[in-house]
Design a protein around this nucleic acid. Sequence first.
RNA 1: ACCCUCGUAGCUCAGCGGACACAGAGCUCCUGCCUUCUAAGCAGAGGUGCGUUGGUUCGAAUCCAACCGAGGGUGCCA
Length: 847
Amino acid sequence: MQIYDPQCIDEKWQEKWEGFGIYKAIDGDKRPKFYSLVMFPYPSGDLHMGHMRVYTISDVISRIKRMQGFNVLNPMGWDAFGLPAENAAIKRKLHPGAWTEQNIKFMRDSQLKKLGTSYDWDREVTTSTSDYYRWTQWIFLQFYKAGLAYRKSAPVNWCPDCATVLANEQVENGACWRHLETPVVQKQMDQWFLKITAYTEPLLNDLDKLTGWPERVKVMQRNWIGKSEGAILNFTVENKPNVRISVFTTRPDTVFGVSYLVLAPENPLVKELTTPENQAKVKEYVEQAGHKTELERMATEKSKTGIPTGSHVVNPFNGDIVPVWVSDYVLMGYGTGAVMGVPAHDERDFAFAQTFSLPITQVISAKDATESHLKAAYVDDGIMINSGIFTGLKNTDAVPKMIKWAQENGSGEGKTNYRLRDWLISRQRYWGAPIPLIHCEACGIVPVPDDQLPVELPIEGITFTGEGGSPLGKTESWLNVSCPQCKKPARRETDTMDTFIDSSWYYLRYADAKDNKEAFAKELVNYWMPVDQYVGGIEHAILHLLYSRFFTKALRDLKLVDCDEPFSNLLSQGMVTMYSPVSGRIEKMSKSRGNVVGTTDFFKRYGADAARLFTLFAAPPEQELEWSEEGAVGQFRFLSRIWRLVQGLIERGEINPAAESVDPAKLDAKGKSLLQLTHRTIKAVTEDLSQERFSFNTAIARCMELVNGLYAYVGEGSSNKDEIKLGDDEKNLVSFAVRNLLLCMAPMAPHISEELWHQIGAAGGNDDSIHVHPWPKFIDALTISDEIELVLQVNGKIVNKVSVTRGIAKEKIEELALADDKVKAKLNGSVVRKIIVVPNKLVNVVI
RNA sequence: ACCCUCGUAGCUCAGCGGACACAGAGCUCCUGCCUUCUAAGCAGAGGUGCGUUGGUUCGAAUCCAACCGAGGGUGCCA
């Protein structure tokens, strides 16, 4: 008997599959389309087993759908612009393009292909090559022309380590998302933005359409967009009738409880309103606040600081005169940079008022409309008190009335605010798509004409030092051009685009990857889009997924695509963890933590199928997965077990390759039960692998049970196994079971399934493949036996089980139960109060 | 502080629109067989009352409530 040698089988089939061309997606095919997408990798150079999880999951999905008769698009590409390439260039004196290219070659040929993935490599895209970024630039210009791209001077987040600015989405806890130890600093700079805020409402509302997305991702996006409805209220400054402070509040109903106003330190009104005697102190406070990083501001969350300006304002509702303070708990970037302080009904205001002994006026009471001594802010709904003409109303009813009153009296209006900001896309780095604009002294900003695209990155004469700003700004030959409009000398824009722009449209390019006339043909994009199943990490819950949704909507409005949501179904796979000798804990698999398992070694020893199976089996896809060598070897053993089973059958001549169906009438009880097990397995695996479940781990467990059942049936355990000879009907049955086992395993363990499929003679020829064979069908009637185990209970406790024929009458069951010896013993003559019968399942005798 | 997920055999996971599960799969452990030895393999055995408490029910791992524990996310957004 040949032993299971995955290395040789893997290689053989990977080569053959390339020749077969069975993984090619066919544009406009008659079969229903299925677009299966996995988040494309950054070509960092080396994938480990932890990375492989996402590709395995997505590949299995693609393979199932292919077998189920879909025209599957399963593409792969490279998110190849970005800082690591540039940093590597600085370190190794190698051009980022060359470094990237060699990484891609290794990751494609020695890693992803060796995993046995079924990508259509004809559609491979690399975002850093000019045939791709040409269209990134073109799309940018369409946005620019539509008013969705603009330049403004703004306070921006600067990461000193990246030596570039970052978008809001790329700042985590006040630090750079790539350098969690590096606080970002605020700088005032001229920068390019994309107007994602033009799509705030659709981005928010259409989340409801995304029924195939995990709830937590949608919640995160909702929070990020941060819609809040309320009002702008205007407070006139005392003795300065021309100056007013506008505040945004979600609680206009609490305005009668205002005891002070607070300005953000950056608010220009601070200067104007600070009275001479407070000048020095306020200036000092504002300066201190300005020096604090975002991180430091947050660290002082608990204790409130602040300082009075000396000015006062008039409450438009009740005429109260209240002081104006400055405090860094108010942010300039949100609302109006000023808030009204209502200590009785806001926790932060309560803390502030306590710190500085400011009055606390209750204006909403729980239920009895009386004032109580508040020990904490009362933030719930209730009845209005101390609120002039609004007293006595329910606060929720008062809100619209009060907004109306403010409007009529010129002291405010209803207003909806969002947290979402426009997307800052300028990067002061080399390795990205150049922003295709030209600065001309005479004409201003001029787009590069379409026929001059791409604006290629200069390669000659560039040196990477990592210092002194972007290399583009120092390359005169590239920088100096003539203005496309007036032909006078002009200069190129030196900023490149955020790499998240590259990944915001790559899924559209796959539909028409080699097009050199346009970014993508509308017809092809409309055929393939939207993506039917997207698989990727939760870390992109906001970033990439929000940007892509924005791009799709904007491109739809530019009439370039028809769909308005790019990804119908989303699966966020959990991370892969392992014991780290560095920290002594179980942590995410990563190089820096010293807990990586390489792919090459593993594939050589146990094969790609064992790697795939373990990854799928060890945990449900959304959950964390702890990598274990033993567990992975266990899958190798399982595969060996299948191998030996089939080899044994072949050697003894017990395989009938044509066994596509089995007549149950010709089988004995043991045979029938194996047939049922086979149909049950097909059914269970089909359901487990369906898009609603993606329960790969249980599908594998089902296959294991079938293998156990097969072994039990062919009696391999007995010592004289070589002598066992099955009759024709039994051979037929066993062959049928094996065929279906292989079909069920094929998406998950593609190599061994293909090899054995050919060995048992089920393939239609040498160039046929199990992976294009239709998915097996089960016969529901054959998943269940005629005999059922009827459970006999007394007071809900199981006392016995008896075998009866399916569909037996209720009365018969009751009779049977009362006649049973064990039931009788339990009843012991007691009076039967009632009998509950669940047909074909159980009977419960209540006493 | 809020939100989410999870808590079933030594371990990792199934089972949760009530009952074909007196709980299933793999790994680990143990015994025997096979083998010159080791590894691999084969056969067999063992093990858990389902985080805690209470409730609903004829019946709960499965539904409800509270609590405890673990992990993750968000966060001065007015």
